[in-house]
Design a protein around this nucleic acid. Structure first.
Length: 891
RNA sequence: GGGCCUGUAGCUCAGCUGGUCAGAGCGCCACGCUUACACCGUGGAUGUCGGGGGUUCGAGUCCCUCCGGGCCCA
């Protein structure tokens, strides 16, 4: 074993150098000849490309990489692909602005399309100026635009040192993903797990699309309580309170709690609505809140989800007035026509937004005397689409759903099955399972997957157009799996021609796309080569690990479990590792709007990748972490120390003539107690670090390793310095004690580099390259056995004892404000009984490191003498310092 | 309103099943250019473990309660 240690060590440039080498040598390439039990497969989160990566990404992706590197060294062949999530609204918006186009699925594909311009980033192109293009053209532009982002992302990940196999990448909008997504949907359909229904659902009026429960966000929204009189048959008023008086035309009942004595006499009677005079029943339902407002509520079709519940459970009629565009219907509804409110509706409400209609209704109520007092301001939690900024309306529409246990299904008890899957999944940390269970238990409907958007994976269906001209939604035309992916808006189904589109006897394509989660929920299947590469599939699926953020347990994690359970009747992975948030120093979640986001590449350039990784890796899974530059500096210090200490440890025994020398890794050569004690301590570190990693507790692995490493540098290295130098600087002709020290140093270094490799891959690889062959990242994870064999019966306490003794000698110099080089002419130390043997056995090393040139007397410390927390209780009772050596002029 | 997590030195955090658990690093103070490292080394100071109850021979560690932070769901 020959070494080539540079004269000057440095971290600079290691990232690029090793990224290139790892690529060239295929260090992280997946060996697909290995069988499933030899593989560790990871379902990496595909980052959204139409955005930028932030510190939080660096944080959580580092966690995954640390785990990946550990298992790779542990002997597993790691399947570690990377995906790009370029499917969804953010990309759609960017493509619109960048190319000045918009998607119009009714248009045919134009193979020669050239966008009007490119790169209007930053300033939005007015919708009127956007050129309409087909969905297929739109998707092509998306793929073109995101390719550039994907290159930048990959560059960052490479620089961070993610040990991804870069030949295994996918995009959530690429043909493979689209085909997989459509195939999975068709199979759901075939098994009765996907169905369409005409039902009231949450609707975003801005985006004009249905919204799923998982995409909801409740926000405080200002409004006013209006106290409004309904009228009993005898003319007496019955007051209700509402924040949405514009829905009075849509009222179908008044509802109070069954136990509410105030209203019990009225149950079963009817009242008439103000302004419109529509007769509605007064009904009882336990979902009514007795203590809120008047205690009796107006049930409209539909103001909120409670209205939907009442409507369904009390079997109320449907009187919708709010349309998909968020405006009241332009026609006077039949239940209002001919009544007292007809002209009010026709003149003041028809076609108005909910907001304008509200003003008009309130004015009218005030005029009619049905408004009691003035509206009082309130803040209430209102449902929003997470990407929208207007409150959601509830409208009735035909949508596609996938069963997810949120609604009863006669075929099977899906909710229980999915809860059971949650119990089978190993969550790290374990308490994250509760969030999964809470979500599953709280589901109130199946998974709405259709979206009235243009860009995304199309619902792969057509519908016959009957001779009457009506569309027969109940008998969709289904493509074969071989045809996938299809775009029903620009392709005709088999057996039809394009000119039959939309004509009686012909067909129409489903214009909707699927929710992005409908595709990303399949990521474990997509990356594993489901139905595309059966050979790969059987080697990697079900996968070992899903790393992800805690915010998307209800979406990505849950929906992935649903799909895998339905399609394969198995969990998609064995483990889920959930990372926490990055918080800024004010304990707030870091975000762009607060202006406290640091660019990841800037961080890596400033501190070095190992340093940033160290910071990230010091945070436990599931725990929020502070953005701490200080922690990165400590990481950098560790990386540099690894370089320097290694250089030092590898210098001993170098033949001054040739600059080379044999490095010995033969445990049998370790014969000195102190050396063996050090290896005994290291053996225990190996055991602890291994156990911690296996329990997905990488921070503990780092902590024990790092602690040992610093003690190794500060104490052991100092203690054995003189002995390791030996008589000369040659590998031959030295004492067995010198060989023992050199061998122990090499063994320890070899072990510690491996232990640290997952955390600081660049510095460790650099050192490895000085004296070993191959990559440290493909070296086997260390085991304790050989170290234990070398250590024999040595006790780590011997190293501690010698270290404490050295510290006690340093202390007298420090207190005398003398240089550490100052010789000690004589000294006397009181050593606690437990440490005495250890100090005695390493006395020569202690004397050398402490520069004790005269007698060093050891006596057993008396009871109570010394503080065990300070130098282990070792006290120097008497000492005489010499003159420090004359300073050598530095060359 | 319900659920989960969290509150330990100025800062960031360890403290696993209750008994050397009152710790580490940073920062701070003092000293030191020592043939690996000044992006360094050596030594030192620092806390009624959020508050209050309780269980126990004994509690950061278990229970109750209150207060403060974060997140999810109503």
């Amino acid at each position: 074993m020959v070494r080539e240690v540079p004269d000057k060590v440095s971290l600079d440039g290691l990232e690029q150098r090793f990224d290139e080498r790892w690529s060239a040598e295929g260090t992280f390439a997946f060996d697909r000849t290995r069988s499933r039990d030899e593989v560790y497969s990871i379902d990496t989160p595909p980052p959204t490309v139409s955005g930028s990566l932030h510190v939080g990404h660096v944080f959580s992706y580092t966690h995954t990489d640390v785990v990946a590197r550990f298992w790779r060294m542990r002997g597993k062949e790691v399947f570690y692909p990377m995906g790009w999530d370029d499917n969804g609204l953010p990309t759609e918006r960017r493509v619109q602005n960048y190319f000045g186009v918009r998607c119009d699925p009714s248009l045919p594909y134009d193979p020669d399309f050239t966008p009007p311009h490119t790169g209007t980033e930053g300033k939005a192109v007015k919708p009127a100026d956007q050129v309409p293009i087909s969905r297929r053209n739109f998707i092509e532009l998306c793929e073109r635009l995101t390719a550039d982002d994907e290159r930048q992302f990959e560059e960052l990940w490479r620089r961070l040192g993610l040990s991804v196999d870069w030949s295994q990448t996918y995009q959530t909008i690429d043909a493979t993903s689209r085909a997989a997504s459509q195939r999975a949907f068709l199979r759901n359909l075939e098994r009765g797990e996907a169905y369409q229904a005409e039902a009231p659902g949450l609707w975003d009026v801005t985006f004009q699309t249905a919204v799923a429960q998982a995409e909801l966000e409740a926000r405080e929204y200002p409004g006013f309580f209006h106290r409004v009189a309904f009228h009993r048959p005898d003319g007496t008023p019955l007051y209700i309170e509402t924040t949405r008086p514009e829905l009075i035309p849509a009222v179908v009942a008044l509802v109070a709690h069954p136990d509410d004595e105030r209203y019990q006499p009225l149950f079963g009677t009817t009242v008439t609505s103000p302004l419109f005079g529509v007769e509605v029943p007064v009904l009882a339902h336990p979902a009514a809140a007795m203590d809120k407002g008047a205690g009796i509520a107006m049930c409209c079709t539909f103001g909120d989800l409670t209205d939907v519940q009442w409507w369904r459970e009390l079997r109320l009629p449907t009187r919708s007035v709010v349309q998909r565009d968020g405006r009241l219907s332009r026609e006077v509804p039949e239940w209002i026509a001919g009544g007292p409110g007809e002209s009010l509706y026709a003149e003041e409400l028809a076609g108005k937004t909910a907001f304008s209609a509200r003003t008009a209704v309130v004015d009218a109520l005030r005029a009619s005397g049905d408004l009691d007092g003035e509206p009082t301001p309130t803040q209430r939690m209102t449902n929003f689409y997470e990407k929208g900024d207007k409150p959601l309306e509830i409208v009735t529409s035909r949508q596609w759903y996938i069963r997810n246990g949120g609604r009863d299904w006669e075929a099977r008890d899906l909710k229980s099955e999915l809860l059971q899957r949650g119990k089978e999944l190993d969550f790290h940390p374990d308490f994250m399972r509760v969030r999964y269970e809470n979500w599953v238990n709280g589901l109130n409907g199946d998974w709405l997957i259709s979206r009235q958007r243009f860009f995304g994976v199309a619902i792969p269906l057509w519908y016959p157009v009957l001779e009457s001209g009506d569309v027969d939604y109940d008998n969709p035309i289904v493509p074969t799996e071989a045809e996938l992916p299809v775009d029903p808006t620009s392709q005709a189904p088999a057996g039809y021609t394009e000119d039959q589109r939309g004509v009686p006897g012909g067909f129409v394509g489903d214009a909707d796309v699927m929710d992005t989660w409908a595709t990303s929920s399949l990521s474990p299947l997509i990356v594993s080569g489901w139905e595309r590469d059966p050979d790969l599939f059987e080697r990697v699926y079900p996968m070992d690990l899903r790393p992800q953020g805690q915010d998307i347990i209800r979406t990505w994690l849950f929906s992935s479990v649903v799909r895998s359970h339905l399609e394969r009747d198995v969990l998609p992975w064995k483990n889920a590792a959930v990372s926490g948030w990055i918080l800024d120093p004010d304990r707030k979640k870091m975000s762009k709007s607060k202006g406290n986001v640091v660019t990841p590449m800037g961080l890596l350039e400033e501190h070095g990748s190992d340093a940033v990784r160290y910071w990230a890796a010091s945070a436990r899974l599931g725990t929020d972490a502070a953005f701490e530059v200080g922690q990165m500096k400590i990481g950098r210090r560790l990386a540099i120390k690894v370089l320097n200490a290694s250089k030092f440890a590898l210098t001993f025994g170098v033949d001054p003539e040739t600059g080379t020398g044999e490095i010995v890794l033969d445990p049998a050569k370790v014969i000195v107690d102190l050396d063996r004690a050090m290896l005994a301590g290291l053996a225990s570190v190996v055991e602890q670090a291994t156990a911690a990693f296996e329990a997905y507790d990488h921070t503990r692995a780092l902590e024990v390793t790092e602690t040992f490493f610093w003690t190794f540098c500060d104490d052991y290295l100092e203690l054995v310095k003189d002995r390791a130098y030996g008589a000369g600087a040659s590998a031959t002709g030295v004492s067995a004690e010198t060989v023992s020290a050199r061998t122990a140093l090499a063994l320890a270094l070899d072990t510690m580099l491996r232990l640290l490799a997952p955390f600081i891959p660049f510095a460790t690889e650099e050192v490895w390259s000085w004296w070993r062959t191959g990559s440290v990242h493909r070296a086997p994870w260390p085991t304790a056995a050989p170290l234990r064999a070398a250590a024999g019966d040595a006790d780590p306490v011997q190293l501690a004892a010698a270290g404490h003794a050295l510290a006690a000698l340093r202390k007298i110099k420090s207190e005398a404000k003398a240089s550490m080089r100052t010789p000690i002419l004589s000294a006397s130390m009181a050593v606690p009984a437990g440490l005495l043997a250890g100090v005695r056995s390493s006395l020569d090393d202690v004397r050398g490191a402490g520069r004790v040139e005269g007698p060093l007397e050891l006596v057993e410390a008396a009871e109570g003498q010394g503080n065990p927390d300070v130098q282990g209780g070792i006290v120097v009772t008497a000492s005489e310092l010499g003159e420090p050596p004359v300073r050598k002029p530095k060359a």
